[in-house]
Design a protein around this nucleic acid. Structure first.
Length: 420
RNA sequence: GUGGGUGUAGCUCAAUUGGUUAGAGCGCUGGACUGUGGAUCCAGAGGCUGAGGGUUCAAGUCCCUUCACUCACCCCA
């Protein structure tokens, strides 16, 4: 029987790593909550149509990367490939647009895409999603990006680049796309086969091509920021102004195109200079038409997602001081019995403790305590039982003292509060 | 979906142009040391060399197939 393994592209986060994840999540939550975002917990699967309508049926994500299945009633569901669609659905379903004029949400959890895994890309991966509904002002775009940048500062990240672009709106984008398509059509035979294909499906993608030949040709191609309508140009300018005022450097990147159909106007990405090919650790933008597209009132919106695995790969958090705890070394059957009681007493007093259950020699039990890196050990054997004492051993100092059992908890609390 | 790289002990890696019984370090278990950890020394356990087929007197090594992992393309967090 072959060993059963986790599916391809799906990873366990082992106990040794979980502490770092929890710290990362704690910093993220605090930053977002201080900025007025409230957590929402969303389902991991939704009806497939939700994703097809919001992300776009022709996008790669929907057309070939979703895990889709039917339930017994024949209804078709998909594991969520991203979070915005579900957030918008919940926003509408629970009428969150009533009450306050704007709504700020964040969520954290796994997303699923059936892609070929590689460095920084997984089939199940965790994202933090952040969404603001109901505000169209350019200052919102800048503020939300600023919160993200501040979060990265708190996480101790360096070597990041903020890329910025404007995709236009339903007024000006179609004109631009037509212009670009004409250009590409004229140069069609000079482009690589990949680009010829891109030119038809998603023309803006040609800008991502790495072929030197294509790059040369595209020098003269129309750029989206040049053909924005007056309103979009003004919005973009003001986003840039705000970011500059806040002191955040950014790079205009007219090649930045998002792979989801719902974006308009501001699009941004934060890339790390320290990762491999999959180097975007956060990305998002404005999606003013999506709420309405899904049957809600016309509602502007802005949001982004952070890739937590990629973020985690970059983190070098300083190690935290070990929390004090006690390992109980018990010698003999009677001591084991007493030890179980003592263990419970310690825990009830709010102290962290474990005991050695196996009846091994003192030496072996101490070795075990050492391996577990227990800072404190309690020794209870026949001699101590007879005298009503326990030995409290400081494993780091290598010193110990014998004291009355009744004094133990008071003593420990004293030590731990003064040391911390 | 398309390419490249890599598969030997729990982990990191050796093994001559194909040549006897596949080794080492770390880790693990036990001992030296009967109730005192970390150091040292000794011993032990642990392998269908990813799987299947082929070539050969002989395969961890060469060939084919397959699987897994990995990096990259595509695309994205």
């Amino acid at each position: 029987m072959p060993q059963i393994k986790a599916p391809k592209g799906v990873a366990d986060i082992l106990p040794a790593q979980v502490r770092d994840w929890q710290r990362m999540e704690r910093i993220i939550r605090r930053t977002l909550e201080a900025a007025g975002f409230a957590e929402i917990r969303l389902p991991i699967f939704e009806v497939t149509e939700l994703f097809a309508r919001s992300i776009g049926a022709e996008t790669d994500i929907v057309s070939k990367e979703m895990y889709t299945f039917q339930d017994r009633g024949g209804r078709t569901f998909s594991l969520r490939p991203e979070g915005t669609a579900g957030a918008v659905r919940a926003y509408l379903e629970h009428r969150l647009y009533h009450g306050a004029s704007d709504c700020r949400l964040y969520y954290l959890g796994p997303m699923f895409r059936a892609e070929r895994p590689q460095a920084g890309r997984f089939r199940q991966f965790n994202q933090v999603g952040v969404e603001v509904f109901g505000l169209s002002e350019p200052g919102v775009d800048a503020e939300v990006i600023a919160v993200l940048m501040e979060m990265f500062t708190r996480l101790g990240l360096a070597g990041l680049r903020l890329d910025l672009n404007s995709l236009g709106c339903p007024e000006c984008r179609p004109g631009y796309l037509r212009q670009l398509q004409c250009f590409l059509e004229a140069k069609r035979l000079l482009l690589c086969t990949d680009c010829q294909r891109r030119a038809e499906i998603n023309p803006q993608r040609v800008f991502d091509c790495k072929q030197p030949g294509c790059q040369g040709i595209l020098e003269d191609a129309p750029k989206s920021p040049d053909s924005l309508c007056a309103a979009c140009r003004d919005h973009f300018r003001r986003v840039c102004d705000c970011l500059e005022q806040l002191g955040y450097a950014y790079q205009l990147n007219s090649r930045l195109v998002r792979g989801l159909d719902y974006y308009n106007r501001t699009a941004f990405e934060i890339v790390s200079l320290k990762l491999g090919a999959q180097n975007a650790i956060a990305g998002g933008g404005r999606y003013d038409g999506l709420v309405e597209l899904l049957g809600g009132p016309s509602t502007p919106a802005f949001g982004y997602a952070i890739g937590l695995e990629r973020l985690n790969m970059l983190l070098q958090l300083p190690s935290e001081p070990v929390q004090p705890w006690i390992y109980l070394v018990l010698l003999g059957d009677e001591a084991k019995r007493q030890g179980l009681l003592l263990l419970q007493e310690l825990r009830k007093a709010g102290l962290s403790a474990q005991m050695g259950h196996q009846n091994k020699s003192l030496k072996k039990q101490l070795q075990h305590a050492n391996k577990l890196e227990a800072p404190w050990v309690l020794i209870l054997g026949e001699d101590e039982l007879a005298a009503g004492n326990v030995i409290l051993r400081d494993m780091r100092q290598g010193t110990q003292e014998e004291l009355l059992q009744e004094q133990l908890i008071g003593k420990l609390k004293g030590i731990w509060t003064t040391k911390s």
